[in-house]
């Protein structure tokens, strides 16, 4: 089972990211689960969301304490939240940042693999909004290979309707531009 923790700010779409990843995995016939860190929505506050993916039915319903993958949707969180908390030694962090993966690894003071993409820039250029949820999923797929790119198309279309194409484009660009170390 792969456990993924998303860090974002309220309104950036961390919950949506977790949900879309789960829906794409389920679409592939896998078992998956996505849930927010429950509570009242607070725009701008640091939030987390969770996703589990497995080949067998998932029985655990607790929060994720030792993730295999951490996804960060807002670079400012790298300095104010311990995003690497509990991350498995072989686990990985994927984040939006203008910095290089080496620099991010230095900021976080971790030895884990790190994937970096400037998702804010891509989102602004493609979507016209600094909402990085779908963009970061492109980076997640590139860095982790957890699910197939194509599996996101049905959930994107269902969730975003007429703006699905733009989100697919942002996703694709992030997939291409992600750097990994």
């Amino acid at each position: 089972m792969i456990e993924i923790r998303f860090h974002g700010r309220g309104g950036q779409g961390a919950v949506t990211s977790a949900e879309l990843l789960a829906l794409a995995a389920i679409h592939e016939g896998k078992y998956a689960q996505a849930f927010p860190s429950f509570g009242p929505e607070r725009r701008g506050a640091p939030v987390v969301a969770f996703c589990r993916i497995n080949d067998k039915p998932i029985r655990i319903r607790a929060n994720i304490y030792e993730p295999d993958l951490v996804v960060v949707l807002d670079a400012s969180l790298l300095k104010i939240v311990n995003v690497a908390s509990g991350l498995k030694p072989e686990g990985m962090i994927v984040t939006t940042s203008k910095d290089s993966p080496e620099k991010v690894r230095e900021i976080l003071n971790v030895k884990n693999r790190v994937g970096v993409v400037d998702a804010v820039k891509i989102a602004l250029e493609v979507l016209g909004l600094p909402i990085t949820n779908t963009t970061m999923l492109g980076s997640v797929v590139k860095a982790s290979g957890l699910v197939q790119k194509e599996s996101f198309i049905p959930p994107f279309k269902e969730r975003f309707g007429r703006i699905a194409e733009k989100n697919i484009a942002a996703f694709e660009r992030a997939y291409q531009e992600t750097l990994i170390v």
């Binding site: 789960a22 689960q33 996505a34 849930f35 429950f38 319903r61």
Partner: peptide
């Protein structure tokens, strides 16, 4: 509540 009501699953 939440633990089931707000979870996406198959």
């Amino acid at each position: 509540g939440f633990i089931l009501s707000h979870v996406i699953e198959p």
